[in-house]
Design a protein around this nucleic acid. Structure first.
Lengths: 175, 175, 175, 175
DNA sequence: TATGAATGAGTCTTCATTCAT
DNA sequence: CATGAATGAAGACTCATTCAT
């Protein structure tokens, strides 16, 4: 708290004028970052036209690039994960994360659903499973990039998405 | 440390007979869990016969199931992630995680490589990208399961793998 | 530290607002006592007139009396000696003590030197040796007084100084 | 205690077969060193012939040289001083030191007394004061030597003793 | 008699929080 | 509103001592 106050150029006591506790401040940062990532990632999708596949590719680029731009904040994400598993803040964070993941999966799910309805993607697919895997992949590739400077999350995700889109479209080709 | 000693039914000082510091103990737990997860997940692959696709499916089941079995320890994984991003232990954990991910990706990479060489998978694929995404997916689905009791990582991963395998095999079908 | 804080009527943490560590506090007390003893003992010499012998006697009285007045703090001196011989603080204390003794010997040395130049003391004497012995004698008589309530350092030092001054003046008498 | 046991090449528990506590061991070391110093210093005096002055010079050499030879143990002396001023061992050490100083002063006192009786030294002197100052000087010069490698206790003590002996003999010369 | 693994009271130090100004 | 000196609970770690072998 002392370091935060010093960095902010205010007195230690002043923090408590705006936040009731360190936990509250921490959670506020979590919410701020959640919104920042979510909006940065989804801002283009709604406006974007094109096929479902094209929009998935665009979303992939958008998510990976926007998180890469704030990679220095990725350590915060890991702290939030840890906060959700231990400490007094467990419930608060766990609930928030669950909701954040559900929201984000819902966006991707509807995108895939749209692709199926338009006949772009095979109807044999479970949109929610694909969405969960994609959302998770973004998390996980960025995690690996955090550990390994030699790792290229954008290239990896693009390579992967090409194959996945082939899989999603395959049945259609058969027809 | 006091709580750990109490839980272990030993005196506080006794811990220090076996570990030099809290950090050392923490890291030892990390290594123990790393090995446990790695061996539990990969034990069958080398012995397993069948096509590359079948072996990928088996690996998927093995990884997801074995981690699900120790889901109560998953919170530890998150603490280790957090330890790698902040705290004095950063370097130690970051290095260990980087290596662990590289090792695990290498296993999956060689499995996919094998599939390509046998003609099962399209040669247009980058095995490392697919491996990274798969490894990440396992991490991420289990993370989502941690947050959300309603989430079904095994079903999700299986659904997803089916589509992915179609994508991987596509070129061959074209021929 | 807890006991010090309690005695001072402040919280434990408050000490750390003013001193970085127990060692720093300990050393600060050492410096405080050093200055206190040095200034209490030497305050009058420069202002004092009279022969070198008279000034030596006056210095003797001043040193012995002023230290006797703070005899309750003499145990601290012994702790500082111990700190200079063992513990992590060795270098710090050893250096400070060396300097303190050199400074104090220099004062006495110049007093004796003055006596020689004025022709009061024999020129055959080594001023530095006499100074070191005198400074040591003060230390040592007070040490013995610490151990032995029946010991009279002031009387002892005066008796001794009389004889010493005779010795210092002897050559002159021969002339 | 662990370090002592290791250095002695025995088990930690074995120390407690011979000493009831760390304090007891510490005190035993104190007594051992006391005797060692005392006997090393006084062994020659009784056997020594010559004038009182000659014997004082011999004693000075003997004391200073023998302590210089075990200068590495001088830090122990300081720890003993500290033990006499703080800690639970205060009384024990204080009493022992008082006695040790009294004994040692008695030896020197009788030497000077002898000198007076033989007519070597002036009868105007207080033998006990001179003895106390001499004994203290030995302590103190060695203390200064501990702090300062450039300090020469043997030379200093000899220089000083010459002057002191002149003072002691002065009255006689007058006669 | 000798041992060393186990112990826990005691110690230093940190840091989120408070409150008088 | 803002501050930062004061606080003390909490935590990591040490080490003299014990006791089963």
């Amino acid at each position: 708290m002392a370091e935060i106050a010093a960095t902010a150029g205010i007195g230690k006591g002043t923090i408590y004028e705006y936040f009731n506790s360190k936990e509250d401040l921490f959670f506020a940062v979590f919410e701020w970052l959640s919104h920042k990532i979510a909006s940065a990632a989804t801002v283009r999708i709604s406006a974007l036209g094109g096929s479902a596949a094209e929009r998935l590719v665009a979303l992939n680029d958008s998510v990976v690039c926007s998180v890469l731009k704030m990679m220095d904040m990725y350590s915060l994400v890991m702290e939030f994960w840890a906060a959700s598993s231990s400490s007094v803040m467990r419930k608060r964070f766990k609930t928030a994360f669950r909701q954040a993941y559900r929201d984000f999966r819902a966006i991707v799910t509807s995108l895939i659903q749209e692709g199926i309805e338009r006949g772009e993607f095979t109807s044999g697919v479970n949109p929610e499973s694909i969405a969960a895997a994609l959302v998770g992949m973004w998390d996980a590739l960025l995690l690996q990039a955090w550990f390994d400077d030699a790792f290229e999350p954008l290239k990896t995700s693009k390579d992967f998405l090409v194959i996945l889109l082939v899989g999603l479209a395959a049945e259609k080709q058969k027809l």
